[in-house]
C-alpha cells in the first residue's frame, strides 16, 4: 500500500453514507526505535467533509496569517476530523481500479469516533 492509495479516497460510514474525503494521513513516531527515528505508525486519517483537496493545512495548525488567505482556507475545511486507523473497517483494493462508488471508498466501523484534527 502506498500513501496515494488512501489520499483523496471518499470515506463512508458503515451504512454507506458519505462523510468526506481523506485529505491527509497522520503518523505518530512511537513505534519500535529504528536506526535513527522511531517507526512511523499510521495513526489516523484526516477527513474533510467539504473538499478533497488538502490545501496548506490551516485547519490543523495554529497559524492565522496571512489574512485573509489563512481564515478562508480554514473556513473552507471546517468540520475536518480525524478517524483513528483501528476505526477503519475496509480499504479499497488499490489494484481494482475505479469501481462503483461504494467499493472505491474507505468504510469506517459502526462505532467510529471523530476527533479534533488540530496539530
Amino acid at each position: 500500500m502506498i500513501a496515494s492509495d488512501l489520499l483523496d479516497v471518499p470515506v463512508h460510514d458503515e451504512a454507506g453514507a458519505h462523510l468526506g474525503w481523506v485529505v491527509d494521513l497522520r503518523f505518530v513516531l512511537d513505534g519500535a526505535p529504528d536506526t535513527f527515528l522511531a517507526r512511523a505508525r499510521l495513526h489516523a486519517l484526516v477527513v474533510s467533509p467539504r473538499t478533497r483537496t488538502s490545501f496548506m493545512g490551516f485547519e490543523r495548525s495554529s497559524v492565522r496569517h496571512p489574512w485573509p488567505v489563512a481564515p478562508i482556507l480554514r473556513w473552507w475545511h471546517r468540520g475536518t476530523f480525524l478517524v483513528h486507523w483501528p476505526d477503519v473497517a475496509r480499504v479499497p483494493d488499490p489494484d481494482a481500479g475505479a469501481g462503483p462508488e461504494d467499493t472505491a471508498a474507505i468504510v469506517l466501523r459502526a462505532e467510529f469516533t471523530a476527533y479534533e484534527p488540530g496539530l
Binding site: M56, V63, H65, P66, W67, P68, V69, A70
Partner: peptide, 28 residues
Amino acid sequence: YLPILVVANDPEYMGEHVNGRFMNVLGT
C-alpha cells in the same frame, strides 16, 4: 507568489522570522 507568502508565515520554516503585519498586508 501565494506559496511564498504562505511559507513566509510558517513558523516551521521561519521560526522567529515569520512575516510581520506590514509585509503580510502588502503581500496580500
